[in-house]
Nucleic acid binder design. Sequence first.
DNA 1: CGCATAGTTGACTACGCTCAACCCTGGTGG
DNA 2: CCACCAGGGTTGAGCGTAGTCAACTATGCG
Lengths: 204, 204
Amino acid sequence: MDLLTPESLPPALRNGITYQELVTGQALFQQGDPALAVFIVETGRLRLFRYTTEGKMVTFYVARAGEIFAEVAIFSDFYTDSAVAEVDSRVAVYPKQLLLDALCEYPNLAEDFMTLLVRKIQSLKFRLELRDIRSAHERVLQYLRHLAQPDDDRSVNLDRPLKDIAGDLGLTPETLSRTLRRLEREGAIARVQRVIMLQNSSVA
Amino acid sequence: MDLLTPESLPPALRNGITYQELVTGQALFQQGDPALAVFIVETGRLRLFRYTTEGKMVTFYVARAGEIFAEVAIFSDFYTDSAVAEVDSRVAVYPKQLLLDALCEYPNLAEDFMTLLVRKIQSLKFRLELRDIRSAHERVLQYLRHLAQPDDDRSVNLDRPLKDIAGDLGLTPETLSRTLRRLEREGAIARVQRVIMLQNSSVA
DNA sequence: CGCATAGTTGACTACGCTCAACCCTGGTGG
DNA sequence: CCACCAGGGTTGAGCGTAGTCAACTATGCG
């Protein structure tokens, strides 16, 4: 289900959307800048971070393709973080006022937008739940089960580098590698290339 | 800033809202129940949690006064977590269908609603980012700094049991206790009862 | 007064991190 | 066509930090 595709947008808003290309390391906005727009990542990924009063950099989020970010712009006058492209990226720019107007005029659009926000909440909640599982063993299993669910078969295709996945899971690549190997030896999963099959083992 | 106060609501929705009182420990709904309504905390606080397949309880969120929860009800037919009052609480009940109708009809309402969702996203993002800090030392400091910011003074009032806070931080009560003690000895914080003062130490 | 619960402290353990070496694959250029 | 290289992935050894288990204190409440 695609939300907020150009086709589904009212003309007034569609014409207002622009796209911006960013090269690695390029900043999209800085914390404190006037909040003019909400963004959705088309390709690449951006790091959202902030400097503490003591000058230390703290990463708040890494936004990837399809994800909305800087949604804080909806109700705040200034960006709370800075956004910098981690790799060459392309983002869709939804000017704030235009978007607000469109939301008022086209309720379905508002519903789409809320769906995006609720999805983001669900995704964040799931990732947070994962982190509450201490053992790498169980955490990885839970992650794989979650990914397998939508397809309803028991296979998972790992479409991005293991080291990225390790980051999402809050593990190092080494630990993830070891854990997958162990799960394989135990018969909990089977691996062929980048595809993982979950065995219908009873969970201890 | 109050959002979604009774006065700001269209009559059709206002008349549909009910309020529910909960005593400590009382459940509002269980995971798997049909999702009939979205809630906003009036007073008190509720714990949103889920049981993993291993039977371990995982807290997703603690909703406090003014916060929205069970927003998944907007798009889902069943609740994904259980909600239980941590203290005597009062919640506003927004029946799902009524709310959806009202959102379509009253765009300002939708904006308020989105603001609540965005706030929640901000809060979740922060907690997730905390978990990426491996060292308990830094994690606790970051947490305290975050809590101190709104007041703009450097003090934090811990209004709930340390063991609950430890849970939010992904630490055991023992580790949190030790960490606070160490921060105290190092002069990074000062503690009086349940109030913590952050010292303006430069962070290495 | 006695019990329950939160919080603190200590000793020990275990798990995941770090650092390092190595393998494997895909891409590039001579 | 092969040689080379870069990056991801795997494996090993050792370490450190937070978890675990346990004992004890402090606090609140019937």
